[in-house]
Write a protein that binds this DNA or RNA. Structure first.
Lengths: 361, 361
DNA sequence: TACAAAAGTGTGTACGCACACACTTTTATT
DNA sequence: AATAAAAGTGTGTGCGTACACACTTTTGTA
């Protein structure tokens, strides 16, 4: 258990070569006789040598430049969290020669996305982390990066088969099922449920639909029959948003639950409150401040946490694991579906602070 | 943003002294003229110097020996998780000269606890991590460790005012409230609820009572009146356990929910199933395999995850933060109250695997 | 066979810090 | 004032790795 760690020097000694030769084998720098290479490799494998990362980081002056392409958090506060996660990871990895440059685009402006993506590409980063919310526009860039072998990690919006190093996100379908369970638990008789998609064009439509599908599938597996209605709303026009919402709510008999598939549940909560429509329970997504406000008031019952901060953090870590630490990385990383309610909220908020203080070591 | 990191050498240069002197100031090794010390300290503060931990770990050959005093996981599988967390932290910290020795005691045998605690103390560890489940027996040891300035971290069972470096655990009271919310959400009419404490003497009684208190307080704040009954059971005698449980269940009208305050909800689920008592929903604690089995079958509705693996991990990290990295550590660390149900279970299980692969870097 | 090119191998320095040791200056004592 | 002790300060080496460079051996060619 306490056997002293084995160093390059030890391997060199065993293989009767110099440390430099072992180094060449470890890093595939070539210039090693095949016979010797095999001998050394065998010793490395047998001794399950693990390089001292401290020493490696110290000795190497290699710099890694990462780029992050994310929506502007001033336009939609949801994006504050991934940004924080990115910065947290950047802080930890700084000592390993990693720097992360952020390229911020307006999530309502595809042209701006393209412009920032071009800028990013021009800087020739070693790795890229992005939220590809504009499907059509992002494809040429993915192709180009893939062509030039620049690894990229996608998050929040999944796009398969374009050579990403990995995807970080959440299982939307399953989160819909989870919402169903939360509504259904303890509910003795059937009732009506309203699904609300907000700003479907901007947030990724596919995700929202998967959430809906999950919820519907959950209830279709139950004995009783629940009536489920879906509406799509656009938050940019407040008046029409409110009217259409009220219309839907009033038109449904025995409406007990509303499932908001984006982080904008607070818009629904606010309008229901204004119209004094109580006894309708809301389940939504994400711990954005406006949602927390209504969670505390009780009008939002549960929030499913998509862990956006951790998504940002892990995305950068994923790049570092691949490029800096040369570890195998998983193709997809689904974050847990955290269920947040008034009673456990503060521990999730504290956790985020804690982790920030923790740093890497 | 990208300003190059500042080194001891840089500080020395600015202060017109040698690196050795700066080193003395940083480590309070004394032997520095007060005037010079102040000058250097000022430069350190202003430049917000952050030591390169890699270099520090490399340069220092100091060894830290930690000891962990935990119950035997072969006696109660709940303790497997903290053990895993401890080992995970140990793996990460190995390169920083930290080794962790485990002392395992039988959680049903106070004498064994004392024996193992004595063994542990005799090895003169630099830091101690323990689950103090035997209140009376542990006190003299806490006093002794406090006396000899050996930092110790408590977990799972809180004991205040005996000088622990910190306590890692969960807010039991609040988790009871959370259980209440889960039962109550969507429940339109009042009903009866049964609270079951299992093996109260062994698991920490105070915790179980706090959970009960939380649940009761939750319902006392509701408009409707819920009838809440409590029983205590002992799992060592299966027959009496089952009989007394059935007796209680049959004696309560309109019983809809059972709240099991320990990780042994599966015992209740198993007995209800055997007696074909459906329509009673169970909420319990912890992702032990037996519980997961009934979660999948549907007889357990929710499990509150006490994150025991993370407790073990953080406990060791806490010691390392204090001793190795000389960081300020928080007196108490409450882990989030994760709500686990069939629909989000796998992401919590995957997460644990993930984290293990992640290592420190 | 000679001799250059290529292939293979060894040596030394730097990374930033900890720490031991050598050295210099100040203070106390007679 | 001389000297020892104490206080203060500087220098150098090692931690394990990366990497540039110098060196040695093999291979190919005329």
């Amino acid at each position: 258990m306490d056997q002293k760690t084995i160093r390059i020097k030890d391997i060199a000694l065993k293989a009767k070569v110099s440390p430099g030769t072992v180094d060449r084998v470890i890093h595939n720098r070539g210039k090693v006789a095949e016979k010797v290479r095999i001998r050394i490799q065998k010793i490395i494998d047998e001794s399950n040598y693990e390089p001292n990362l401290m020493a490696r980081a110290l000795g190497s002056k290699k710099q890694y430049r990462f780029a992050a392409l994310i929506p502007d958090h001033q336009v939609d506060s949801y994006w504050q969290a991934p940004k924080t996660g990115i910065e947290k990871a950047a802080g930890e990895l700084k000592q390993f020669g990693v720097s992360v440059r952020q390229f911020i685009f307006n999530p309502y402006d595809a042209k701006d996305f393209v412009k920032k993506a071009e800028e990013l590409t021009a800087t020739g980063p070693d790795g890229i982390f992005l939220s590809p919310i504009f499907y059509h526009e992002v494809l040429p860039f993915l192709a180009q990066w893939h062509e030039t072998s620049v690894p990229f990690v996608l998050f929040n919006t999944e796009i398969s088969d374009h050579g990403p190093l990995s995807y970080i996100g959440q299982d939307s379908y399953q989160s819909g099922k989870l919402a169903g369970k939360l509504m259904h638990y303890g509910q003795s008789e059937p009732c009506s449920i309203l699904i609300v998609h907000i700003d479907e064009k901007i947030d990724n439509a596919a995700h929202l639909l998967k959430k809906e599908e999950g919820l519907r599938d959950y209830f279709s597996q139950q004995r009783d029959t629940f009536s489920i209605t879906t509406i799509e709303l656009d938050s940019s026009d407040t008046e029409s948003f409110n009217n259409r919402l009220a219309e839907a709510v009033n038109g449904i008999a025995d409406l007990r639950h509303i499932f908001v598939t984006t982080s904008k549940a607070h818009l629904v909560a606010s309008e229901l409150e204004r119209r004094r429509l109580e006894n309708i329970r809301i389940i939504g997504y994400d711990l954005v401040p406006a949602n927390l406000h209504y969670l505390e008031k009780g009008s939002i019952g549960f929030l499913i946490n998509q862990n956006p901060e951790r998504q940002g953090y892990l995305g950068i870590r994923q790049l570092a694991d691949f490029l800096v630490f040369r570890k195998a990385v998983s193709k997809t990383k689904f974050l847990p579906l955290d269920i947040i309610t008034l009673e456990n909220l503060r521990y999730y908020l504290e956790e985020e602070v804690m982790n920030t203080a923790e740093k890497l070591v």
